[in-house]
Simulated scan of single mutants.
Amino acid sequence: DDAPRVGVISFVVEGWNSSHFAAALSAEYGIGVRDGLFCAHPLVRTLLGSDPGEAGECGAPEAEPGERSLNAIRVSFGAGTPDEHVERFLRAVRELVNDGARWKYRTEDGRCVPDRGAAQL
């Protein structure tokens, strides 16, 4: 079969709110990922240990950076994704996990965004 392949990985990072982690990947490294419940709310909530019947809407719940994550992060790699892009993603994840975010973030309209009013580290 010559059909193109796409790899999709969903994950959470211990000690991080997934929205905060996704925002830091985007703002600090220029790497776009999705965060949320991915239209699979009961399954994702069950996997993350929360109430699968809890009402919610698409996207991430409002949470401050560092709060326990009730959503996940999803990254996709296509057949044409160069190795250096995968390596850049892995390096960014490693740096965020080991060193933390360099910028400050806040919740705005239910999304974690860089705090433009705070001095960036």
Score class of each variant (00 low, 15 high):
114 P>E: 05
119 A>R: 14
62 E>Y: 02
18 S>G: 05
49 G>P: 05
66 G>S: 02
98 N>S: 15
64 E>F: 05
70 L>E: 14
47 L>I: 09
87 E>P: 02
79 A>G: 09
56 G>C: 07
59 G>K: 04
73 I>R: 05
51 D>N: 13
114 P>C: 00
74 R>F: 06
74 R>Q: 12
6 V>E: 14
29 Y>L: 05
9 I>A: 14
114 P>I: 07
102 R>E: 13
34 R>M: 11
11 F>S: 09
15 G>T: 03
21 F>K: 01
67 E>F: 06
105 Y>D: 02
12 V>H: 06
90 L>A: 11
107 T>S: 08
30 G>W: 09
32 G>M: 08
89 F>Y: 13
82 P>Y: 07
85 H>T: 11
98 N>H: 13
58 C>M: 07
46 T>G: 14
76 S>Q: 10
5 R>S: 10
29 Y>I: 07
56 G>M: 11
26 S>F: 13
95 E>N: 06
1 D>I: 14
74 R>S: 12
22 A>E: 05
121 L>P: 15
71 N>H: 03
99 D>L: 10
103 W>M: 09
109 D>K: 03
40 A>R: 10
15 G>W: 02
44 V>G: 00
48 L>D: 02
42 P>N: 04
83 D>N: 14
117 G>I: 01
14 E>W: 04
41 H>G: 10
83 D>M: 14
85 H>S: 15
68 R>T: 13
5 R>A: 10
6 V>Q: 11
1 D>R: 15
98 N>C: 08
101 A>D: 00
75 V>W: 07
18 S>V: 01
75 V>S: 09
37 L>Q: 01
2 D>H: 13
